[in-house]
């Protein structure tokens, strides 16, 4: 078994982990760092449930080798709140009824976070495109789009 010691910043904190070279980032986040908010719906980049931000960009952590994160900045759903207080984005998901079973929610919030942090002026179409790598079977996406729109209006 080959391992590699990597250093990354996860949700603002520096973390040093010895990862197995075979592991996906998803497995390391859930298994070693206990960040269970990162979900697994397919393991092959199709559903977006495992979305995290790497250096600010949303990626599917299931098809990202953990060894690649050495020196990188990772953000997961657990890093979205501050001091136990929901971010405006999270609050918008609650208020707009964008959550049902909730399994897709962390992934959607991370994709939406990247959109909001892009600093771009976003149209509805931009939002839809930005969320198109995340699947949801419960909501028909309607309230998720509304939540992101609301978060933008509230200037997160």
């Amino acid at each position: 078994m080959m391992t590699k010691k990597i250093t990354m910043r996860v949700n603002g904190r520096e973390v040093v982990v010895e990862v197995d070279i075979r592991e996906s980032l998803l497995e390391v986040l859930r298994g070693r760092l206990n960040l269970k908010g990162v979900k697994k719906g397919c393991s092959v980049g199709e559903c977006g449930a495992c979305t995290v931000l790497i250096n600010g960009e949303p990626i599917d952590s299931c098809i990202y080798l953990a060894v690649w994160t050495d020196g990188k900045e990772i953000r997961t759903i657990e890093g979205e709140e501050t001091g136990g207080k929901l971010s405006k984005l999270q609050q918008a998901f609650v208020d707009e009824g964008a959550v049902q079973c909730g399994f897709c929610t962390p992934g959607f919030i991370m994709s939406a976070r990247a959109l909001l942090d892009s600093g771009k002026k976003l149209t509805r179409q931009d939002i839809i495109k930005g969320l198109s790598g995340n699947m949801c079977r419960c909501t028909g996406y309607q309230n998720i789009i509304r939540a992101v729109e609301r978060a933008i209006e509230d200037k997160v």
């Binding site: 859930r30 979900k39 997961t76 998901f93 909730g102």
Partner: peptide, 22 residues
């Protein structure tokens, strides 16, 4: 009334526990 889902906060925080989280 549009009462907010009682589990929504846990879910948006990634704190809701599904089988694999337990």
């Amino acid at each position: 009334k549009n009462v907010r889902r009682i589990d929504a906060v846990a879910k948006v925080r990634g704190q809701a526990k599904y089988v694999d989280d337990l």
